[in-house]
């Protein structure tokens, strides 16, 4: 893989707010090149978006996350793509993955209440004709998300001056 791209991506994956000038400085690259690579990667669909990691629990916001294991019957000639698309089009669905193992699709869902999520599953998801069955798992606590620990803050425990 292109080393320049790898270096840029590795950095901005953890810190997408860095400005171009600083990014160029820390990576030891020309600003123009960094800017061009990022644009190219956006056009090529390598960089797909920028998100913020939020611990909604700390805001006491009403938010329920569920991970739903879905077994489906794949369709001839189309495999799982059509059914996946039908599911991911719902805005409350945040992720859809095709899985190996004992079920086929992992659907992640965000809703305001347990009831809202279960209504979605029973009325929208389970009623799709290719869906064989579903198993809904509610998230109770998020410890770590996207490589970031949510439950603890970094503390510098070193002595302030060390030779």
């Amino acid at each position: 893989m292109n080393d320049t791209r790898l270096k840029i991506l590795t950095f901005i994956e953890k810190n997408s707010r860095v400005d171009l000038k600083e990014l160029a400085v820390v990576l030891g690259m020309e600003e123009d090149m960094v800017s061009k690579e990022i644009k190219d990667m956006e056009n090529e669909g390598i960089i797909c978006g920028f998100h913020t990691i939020i611990d909604w629990d700390k805001l006491a916001a009403e938010k329920v996350t569920a991970m739903i294991e879905v077994r489906v019957t794949p369709q001839r000639g189309k495999g799982f793509d059509d059914i996946a698309e039908r599911i991911y089009k719902y805005p409350e669905v945040t992720s859809v993955y095709l899985m190996s193992g004992s079920f086929d699709l992992m659907v992640m869902l965000e809703g305001k209440t347990l009831k809202e999520v279960s209504t979605f599953v029973t009325e929208k998801l389970a009623t799709l004709e290719t869906v064989i069955n579903t198993q809904t798992n509610f998230v109770l606590k998020k410890y770590k998300d996207h490589g970031t620990v949510l439950t603890k803050k970094y503390e510098d425990n070193r002595m302030p001056i060390v030779p």
């Binding site: 510098d156 070193r158 002595m159 302030p160 001056i161 060390v162 030779p163």
Partner: peptide
């Protein structure tokens, strides 16, 4: 005595001081 002892003492007393004096990985 190590020349940095004095600084260590001042910094340790000081609240909200920022140190760039650490010789070990973060």
């Amino acid at each position: 005595p190590s020349g940095i002892r004095k600084f260590f003492d001042i910094v340790s007393e000081m609240e909200d001081a920022i140190s760039l004096g650490v010789g070990e990985p973060d």
